[in-house]
Computed example of a mutant assay.
Amino acid sequence: MTGTTDEGTAVAAPVSTPAAAARRRAVPYPLLLMALAVLLAAAATAGIAVGSIGVPAGQVWGILLHRVHPVLADPTWTPVRETIVVDVRLPRVLLAGVVGAGLSVSGMALQALVRNPLADPMLLGVSSGASVGAVLVLVFHVTLFGMFSLPVAAFCGALAALVAVYFLARSGGRMTTVRLVLAGVAMAEVLSAVASFLIVTSNDPQKTQSALRWMLGGLAGTTWTTVWIPVGAVLLGTAVLLGVCRSLNLLLAGEKAAAALGLDVHRFRGALFTLVALMIGTIVAVSGQIGFVGLILPHVVRLLVGADHRRALPAAALLGASFLIAADLGARTLMSPEEIPVGILTALVGGPFFLWLMRRKAPR
C-alpha cells in the first residue's frame, strides 16, 4: 500500500506478506501476547538474578512475594540478598522495561504518523536536546535541583528542542511531514554539535567521561526515586496511543483517505508528535540516548501481529521491555566488572538491522 505526503512524495505504508499473514493466523493473538508476557517475566527474572552476586530465580520470586505479603514466602535468604534484589536490581530492571516499552511504542506511533518505516524516536531531535541539557549539568556541575538536576535539565532540553522543531516545521499555519522530518534532522545535528563542543572544551576529564557515558545511554545508578516519573509518563502515553488506534490505522491508508473518513490529519499529527516527544524526553532524561529500539522493535512486532495498532501496540510494549532488559543485562555482565553503555549494544544490534531494512525497502 502506498500513499502521498502533502508534497506529493510517495511513501510506503506497512504491508503484510502472505507468509506473515499465515504465521499470524497460525498463532492466536491472545496466545502470542501471553508468550510475550512470559518472555518479559523471564527476562526480568534473569535481570534481577544475574550479577556479581548471583541470586537463584526461585529466591528472587520468594523475596518479591515476601515483600508483597509476608505469608506468601518464608524468608530463607540473607538480608544482603534481599537488599540486592529489592533496592539495587529491581528498580533498574523496572526502568529498563519501561524505557524499552516507551521507545518501542513511540517508534511505532512515529512510523505511522510520518508514514516512513525508517522513522524512530530520535527523529525529532528531542534526544539531542536532552543531551545538551544533561551535558550542561555535567560539565558545569549544576546542582540547582539536587539529585534531579540532570533529569530536569535533560527534559527541559528535550522540550525546548521539540518547541523549536514544531515552529520550524510550520508553514502557513500547517505542519507537513517532510518539513517536520527535515527540521528534526537539522535540529538534531546542531544540538549534537553543541553537546560535543561542550564536552571537548571541558577541562575536567571526569566530567567529560560522565557526559560521554550518559550520551551513550545507560541505566547505572537507578534508584526507586528516579523510576516513578518515567513509569507514569510511559503508562499514560501508551494509554493515550491505545485510545487513538483507529486514527493511527487510518493514517496507514494515506492522508487523503484519513481526511475523507473524518480525521483532522494536521491537528491529530501535531498532538501526537507532542505526546511522543514528551514521552521520549522523559525517557531520555533518565536513561540517556538509547538508539534503534524504537526502529527495530515495531518492525518485528508487525511481522508477528500485523499493522493494526490495537494489536501491535501492546505487543510492542511487551517485546520492547523484554529486549531492553536483556540488553541491559548484557551491558553489565559481558565485561564485568566493567559496564558497557547499553546504547552501544542496541546500536550493534540495530545498525545491521537498519541497513538490511533499507535494502529491503529499496525499489527493485
Results as ranks from 00 to 15, higher is better:
Leu124Cys: 05
Leu124Asp: 03
Gly125Ser: 04
Val126Glu: 01
Ser127Tyr: 05
Gly129Gln: 04
Gly129Trp: 04
Gly129Thr: 06
Ala130Cys: 10
Ser131Gln: 07
Ser131Ala: 15
Gly133Cys: 00
Gly133Thr: 01
Ala134Gly: 12
Val137Ser: 00
Val137Phe: 01
Val137Asn: 00
Phe140Gly: 08
Val142Phe: 12
Leu144Ile: 14
Leu150Gln: 13
Leu150Cys: 04
Leu150Tyr: 05
Pro151Asp: 00
Pro151Gln: 00
Val152Glu: 07
Val152Tyr: 08
Ala153Phe: 03
Gly157Lys: 08
Ala161Leu: 10
Ala161Gln: 05
Leu162Ser: 11
Tyr166His: 15
Phe167Cys: 04
Leu168Gly: 00
Ala169Phe: 03
Arg170His: 14
Gly172Ile: 08
Gly173Gln: 01
Gly173His: 00
Arg174Ala: 05
Thr176Arg: 09
Thr177Phe: 00
Arg179Met: 08
Leu180Ile: 09
Val181Thr: 06
Leu182Gly: 07
Leu182Trp: 07
Ala183Phe: 15
Gly184Phe: 10
Gly184Lys: 14
Val185Glu: 00
Ala186Asn: 12
Ala186His: 15
Met187Leu: 14
Ala188Arg: 07
Val190Phe: 15
Leu191Pro: 10
Leu191Met: 14
Ser192Thr: 12
Ser192Arg: 13
Ala193Glu: 03
Ala195Leu: 02
Ala195Pro: 08
Ala195Gln: 01
Ser196Gln: 15
Thr201Gln: 13
Ser202His: 13
Pro205Asp: 04
Pro205Ser: 07
Thr208Lys: 08
Thr208Ser: 15
Ala211Trp: 00
Ala211Pro: 02
Leu212Tyr: 01
Met215Gln: 09
Gly217Cys: 11
Gly218Leu: 11
Gly218Asp: 07
Leu219His: 00
Ala220Met: 14
Ala220Asp: 12
Thr222Ala: 12
Thr222Arg: 09
Thr223Tyr: 09
Trp224Ile: 03
Trp224Gly: 06
Thr226Met: 14
Trp228Ser: 06
Ile229Lys: 09
